[in-house]
Structure formats: structure tokens, C-alpha cells
Design a protein around this nucleic acid. Sequence first.
DNA 1: CGTAGAGTTGATTGGTCTCAAGATGCGTGG
DNA 2: CCACGCATCTTGAGACCAATCAACTCTACG
Lengths: 245, 245
Amino acid sequence: MAQALTHRLEAFTRLSPDDKEALAKLSKVARVVPPRRDLIREGEKPKFVHLMVDGWACRYKTLPDGRRQVVAFFVPGDFCDLNVYVLKEMDHSIGAITRLSVADISRDDMDALTTNYPRITQGLWWEALVNAAIQREWTLNIGQRTAYERIAHLLLELFLRLRTVGLTNGISCDLPLTQTDLADATGLTAVHVNRTLQELRRDGLIVLEKRRLTLPDIEALMTAAMFNPNYLHLDHEGRYLDSNQ
Amino acid sequence: MAQALTHRLEAFTRLSPDDKEALAKLSKVARVVPPRRDLIREGEKPKFVHLMVDGWACRYKTLPDGRRQVVAFFVPGDFCDLNVYVLKEMDHSIGAITRLSVADISRDDMDALTTNYPRITQGLWWEALVNAAIQREWTLNIGQRTAYERIAHLLLELFLRLRTVGLTNGISCDLPLTQTDLADATGLTAVHVNRTLQELRRDGLIVLEKRRLTLPDIEALMTAAMFNPNYLHLDHEGRYLDSNQ
DNA sequence: CGTAGAGTTGATTGGTCTCAAGATGCGTGG
DNA sequence: CCACGCATCTTGAGACCAATCAACTCTACG
């Protein structure tokens, strides 16, 4: 857990002890945010790059009439918006889901990091490109997949992302999202998410209770979701999907 | 037209004559792609950053059963995927919509550009962040807006993006998309797009015929679409939305 | 002219939403 | 330790938005 980011970047590249130490320093300055509290709101001036050290968060946008769309979930090791501070104001909000440990990284610290650690810079590029790819996949997910496929796909993605940072236990992982969170992320209503989860359970594709998710047959779930893991780009240095942890 | 990218980056920052010359050189090497031809396909190894010099293209993903989602439209001055070459393979395809003039920029050329022209580098960062913001807005659009709002929103976005690169004439612009393209981008069927466009016409919000779009009442359209232009981040250096050319 | 892509229309179906009520779980304070 | 309150989850019935299927028209173009 402590070094989710290192874990994550190593899915892409090899890091030197020096690199790892530099990353470890980032996590050390983390502050704690209580659950369901916003880290930053739409309209505010972005000042820091955020690194999720522990806990879950989400990026969301809202419409004037209250409709809400979660556009991304953040899990430990996720970085958000390399270089945001070039923008004048945030076009979305970021909110904690669980109790959160987050490092606020200043522009100067980021600049120092990227000029002194080329492998990390490479890694952060990869991170940014993967995040963009995830956002595109979400567009596909919401635009084309049925409710059933959509939820299956989201759960799979989250599971695999947690696995790359070492936060799974075999076929299980924590999933602190409410059905309302899942609804806001998939463009469905909470009621329909509820019914669809029941279908997935009935079909033996998921076990989800007490904020814990188990995937008894990941292959079948991937088929049901039409899940193609290529967009997570986990295979750069010979690390493959089925190399569990 | 010739210098859409310069036009676009100046929505964000001031460029020196040197900067502009460097950008002009990029456009000069453009090659021509016929309409409806793919530039690059999912699974291929990305080798170049693409700069759209003239014409329209789209980024799209498909599901095994043929469902297709357009996840982005590219108009002149758009850059795609700064630094893609760090990825092993494409997770999506890019296809020309019209006859296209596109510059393939090598890794070396990109590196040279970013080390020698700091303002351009800044500009490209802004460009990348805006593209990410657009992708998020699409997620919101497809996830939460009704068909009517959704199409209104997309048309508005495209119009405003064309305006920042000087490709509008007052309240009109070219729109070479078919109703099927619009359908694939909005997660609707072509039939429903057709009916919804008729509604928008009936309400006097758009005129769309012969691949030409006119927005007679942009304010009303923005209200109908719940359009908030903040995500386009066009206001960095005092350039505002209503400062039409 | 003949063909193909694009746009249009109508009738019907169906996936998802809405509204409303009830059940379950859990932290908190008396 | 129980009672309460509140968020979360669950269930049912009905309505509606958008999909589906199937013509048909229009236009561009070779």
C-alpha cells in the first residue's frame, strides 16, 4: 500500500533505488481528507498535482439541475493531472470517497522531479496517457455498452487497476463505492444499478457485499463485459495481466 | 486555415515570431489522407504525433460485435496524443472524415520542439489538458444529458472549437459529419439523431443543411444544452468567448 | 440513368427511469 | 445496551425515451 505509485510505474518501467526514494518522499507529505469531502471544486484555481497515497477519490462534474457524472475514480498510486496548474480554473471537482491520504505536489516539486529523474518523467507520461485512455474507454462504456456490460466492465477495470498496485487478494478486493457512486459513474440510476448487480450475482460473475468485491470467474466476466485490457497498457515491460500481483 | 495550430495556441499564450515559424514548419510536411481512410488502427505501434492541418478526423473505438463509439473529433489545429510513442500499441483507431491534411511528427522532432521552444511546450501542455477536459465533458454529455441536450452540446462545442481556429463565418461553420457520425459520437442511433436534429431545427436553435451549420441563437442553444464553456479553457490570456475573431 | 450513401418517416419494442415504499445496516447518544 | 436516525440497499408498478426494423426519398456522382 505504502508505495502504490512505485508499484504502478513499475508496471511500465524499471525504477532505480534513487527513483524509488524520490517517489517515496512524495508520499511522505500526504495529508488526510475525511470521506465525502471535496479536495478541490470546479471554478477554483488548481495549485497542486495530487497523488493518491491511500483511499479512494473521484473526479466528477455536475449540471446546473443537479445531475452528476463521475468521470474518473482514483485509487492509490493514481496521479491526477500532471501540469494542471497551467489552467486558470478547474472544470470539475475532485472528492474523497473514503478517508483519503493525498499528497499535494507543488509546481516546483514537480519540475524538480521531472528534471532530475528521467525514468520517473517517462513513467508519469505513461501514467497520463493511460489515464486518458481510461477516460476514452469510459466514453465507449457509457456510449455503447448495456447496463449489464457497463457495470461488469467498470468493476473489472477497478479490480485490475487495484491489482497493478498490489491491492487485491487473489480474486478479491475492497470496493468502497456505494451503488449511487456506481450509478453516477455509469450514467445509470441507483435503482437500475441495484437490479443489474443482482443479475451479475445471479449469473455467478461477481460477489459484492460489505464493500468487498470478489470475481469468481474473471474470464467469464471479461467476456460478458467485452473487456479488452489493452487500454490499461500494462504490458510494457513484460508484465502481463495474468501475472497476479 | 493554414495556421490553425498557431491560432489555437494563441488562445492560450502569446507566441514569438520564432515560435510561429517553428509551428509553420510542422504544417509544411503534411501529407494528404483521403476521406474515410484510417490514419492508424487499434493494435498498431504508434510512431508519430499527428497534427491536423486541414480537414476533419475522429478517434474511435469498436466493440467485438461492431458497436462503434467516436470518442473525439479532430479539427484543424488539433494535436493528438503528445508522447503517444511511449505506448506499445494503440488502444483505438484514428480515421479521416473528410479529405485530410495531416503532419506526422517524429519523436525526435517533438523533442527538439519542446527543448527549443518553451512557450510552445507550455502551449502543448495546455492543448493536452484541454483535450483531456473535452474527453471528460463527453463522458458527462453521454452519461447525463438527454439526446436533445447531447446533440446541442456537441454542435456547440464543435462550433466554438472551430471559432478558436478561425474556421467560422459569423454564426456559421462547415460541419462535414454525417448523422451516423453524430450518432456514433453521442451514443445514439442515427434514426434518433435525425429526429432530434429536426426538433432542434423546429425550435429555431440550429440550421443544418448541406454540411453547413448555422447557430441563429447561440445563447438559447447554450441554455438548452446546459453548455458551460469553461472546459475549453479559452480565457487564459484575456481571450473571451464572445470576442468573435 | 443507375447505384449507393445519406437522410427521413412510421410502427413497435424494450431498456432504463421514475416514483414510492419498505428493509437493512450501522453509528451515535441517551 | 437499546433506541433512534440516516444512509444504503431493495422491491414493485408504470411511464417514457430511445432502439429496432423496415420502408421510402433524396442527392451526388460515375
